[in-house]
């Protein structure tokens, strides 16, 4: 079973985010980069599937130089090897460009045995679009099994097999079934990601990282980056900060003070 897991490097969720005044893109210099939290669950799930069915896990990350940190973290969790798509031309890429690049990178794997499963997080904490997995499935012409809170694989001898997931929906869940190869995205309910062990961290240093440029992937730089973006920010403004609220300490009268406030706002 060959599994590819897509991980993204994002600004730390706790750090304050702002847009760059020059080109309206996220000012990444202003924040500490970390691995997108949801993608840790994707890595964990990929490793668990490998532990049950054998094979190899490859991490695929598109991002700037600093994203090496995220690649390394995946390797120290136990991923076998990495593809890092790194190119100046990628700055400002939107979801359409990201999915294009990821599908091109997956295409290059055909020579080395291809893949049976692509695992992604269901959302990146910075873009928060939840669209890359569906776009990737569309581009690859593969079944899409997204928002999985449970994944099970029924591997056939000699490759192939089926994948079944429970997909979280607004009012419950759906059971989705497809044959492999397929694209799966996971939610954080699915597992508890492991911490890299000391041994894992040491081993990661020796694992292969294949760095690819846009040219290596045969992707035109006009189709990605800021120039290739298919929607553009016209303007932005910072919302006025919330006014500091009233805070009272309950001395038996907390509820009536709160009720008074709610009444003053006409909620009761």
């Amino acid at each position: 079973m060959n599994i590819v897991v897509c991980v993204k490097q994002v600004p730390d969720t706790w750090s304050e985010k702002r847009l760059n005044d020059e080109d309206n893109t996220l000012d990444r210099a202003a924040t500490d980069p970390v691995m997108n939290e949801m993608d840790e669950y994707a890595v964990e799930e990929a490793l668990r599937i490998k532990e049950m069915h054998g094979g190899e896990v490859t991490v695929l990350c598109m991002g700037p130089d600093a994203a090496t940190e995220t690649v390394r973290k995946s390797l120290s969790m136990g991923v076998d090897k990495a593809i890092h798509v790194l190119d100046e031309g990628l700055h400002g890429s939107d979801a359409l460009a990201t999915s294009l690049v990821l599908s091109a990178a997956l295409g290059t794997l055909a020579d080395s045995g291809g893949f049976d499963l692509v695992v992604l997080g269901s959302e990146s904490s910075d873009a928060r679009m939840s669209v890359v997995p569906a776009m990737l499935a569309e581009r690859l012409g593969l079944p899409q099994l997204t928002f999985a809170k449970e994944v099970s694989i029924d591997a056939a001898d000699g490759g192939g097999g089926t994948v079944t997931i429970k997909r979280l929906t607004d009012d419950g869940y759906q059971v989705i079934e497809a044959s492999l190869p397929a694209v799966v995205s996971v939610v954080e309910k699915i597992n508890e990601p492991r911490y890299p062990s000391f041994k894992g961290i040491m081993a990661a240093k020796k694992k292969p990282v294949d760095t690819k440029s846009l040219a290596d992937l045969g992707v035109e730089s006009a189709d990605v980056g800021l120039g290739g973006a298919w929607s553009a920010v016209e303007s932005f403004e910072t919302a006025p900060p919330r006014q500091a609220g009233t805070i009272v300490t309950d001395e038996g009268d907390g509820a009536s003070k709160l009720a008074e406030f709610l009444a003053s706002k006409k909620f009761i």
């Binding site: 679009m129 669209v131 569906a134 776009m135 499935a137 581009r139 997204t146 928002f147 929906t169 298919w230």
Partner: peptide, 18 residues
């Protein structure tokens, strides 16, 4: 959830921004 994923696929299919 479905609306966003349908939009995502439609964007790829029709060569449109989303």
């Amino acid at each position: 959830t479905d609306g966003k994923e349908i939009a995502a696929r439609l964007a790829v299919k029709t060569g449109s921004g989303v």
